[in-house]
């Protein structure tokens, strides 16, 4: 890792049809953080059918434009690949629908800056009263499923706010395109013996972000893909 003051942070934002919120989300991201020398925002347009590209171009973010809609995982992987290309020391994934609080970025990069962790996963369950019941049940089910397949239990495996050290970015072999990407990260971290830390974060639930969230029934597809990866890789 570079000297503390020279640490380069890349914030990866997968964007799919977020024209209504993406500009505000990017503008709300920090320009300075403790222990970070440089911040680059990488907005990955995942084949949006609306005016998301136009909105991104009006901000300070660097645009990565995917020719087709790959899904949450595919867009995130592309952003993380770009983070490697620009030689960032830490990469953070941050959802484009405005459900994350920009104030939490400092909290999730701190364990990596301190050299205590390779992968930091945000958890919304420090104050679970804030989480809608159906969402809470769905996430808990996904946690159990992720545990059975990966052998690692994390309290919020589906949280989109994560921080990766350069070491973990280079070691992990991420390849799943859909929402199963969130559990795949845990699987790869376990396989590559990376140190995982969980940090409490705040999720801002609005009608918009709940509508954009994944369906509970997507769990079957996630399970199939993870099992396939587990036995074939």
């Amino acid at each position: 890792m570079a000297k503390k003051s020279n640490i380069h942070l890349a914030i990866v934002i997968p964007v799919y049809n977020e024209e209504g919120v993406i500009k505000k989300v990017i503008e709300g991201l920090p320009t300075k953080l403790n222990g970070i020398g440089k911040i680059t925002i990488l907005a990955v347009n995942d084949g949006s059918l609306d005016l998301s590209i136009r909105e991104i171009k009006m901000t300070r973010a660097r645009l990565i434009n995917l020719p087709i809609n790959l899904g949450y995982g595919g867009a995130s992987i592309t952003g993380l690949e770009a983070a490697k290309k620009i030689k960032s020391d830490i990469a953070v994934t941050f959802d484009g629908d405005g459900q994350h609080s920009a104030d939490d970025i400092q909290k999730i990069v701190d364990p990596i800056i301190a050299g205590k962790s390779d992968l930091v996963i945000g958890t919304r369950f420090s104050n679970s009263k804030n989480v809608p019941l159906l969402k809470r049940v769905g996430i808990k089910m996904m946690n159990v499923l992720t545990f059975f397949i990966t052998g690692s239990y994390v309290s919020d495996s589906q949280c989109g706010l994560k921080a990766f050290s350069a070491k973990s970015l280079n070691k992990m072999n991420l390849e799943l395109s859909g929402m199963e990407f969130a559990s795949e990260i845990v699987l790869e971290a376990k396989r590559k013996r990376l140190k995982i830390t969980e940090v409490p974060v705040r999720i801002i639930y609005t009608g918009y972000s709940i509508k954009k969230g994944q369906s509970v029934f997507n769990g079957i597809n996630i399970m199939l893909k993870l099992i396939y990866k587990k036995i074939t890789r």
Partner: peptide, 23 residues
């Protein structure tokens, strides 16, 4: 299933490469 998985992986890699090339 095996074929679909391979096609999906191939597609993901190509789209990623195209995106990063422009970047």
């Amino acid at each position: 299933y095996a074929k679909a998985h391979r096609v999906e992986q191939g597609l993901r890699k190509i789209a990623t490469q195209v995106g990063l090339k422009d970047f």
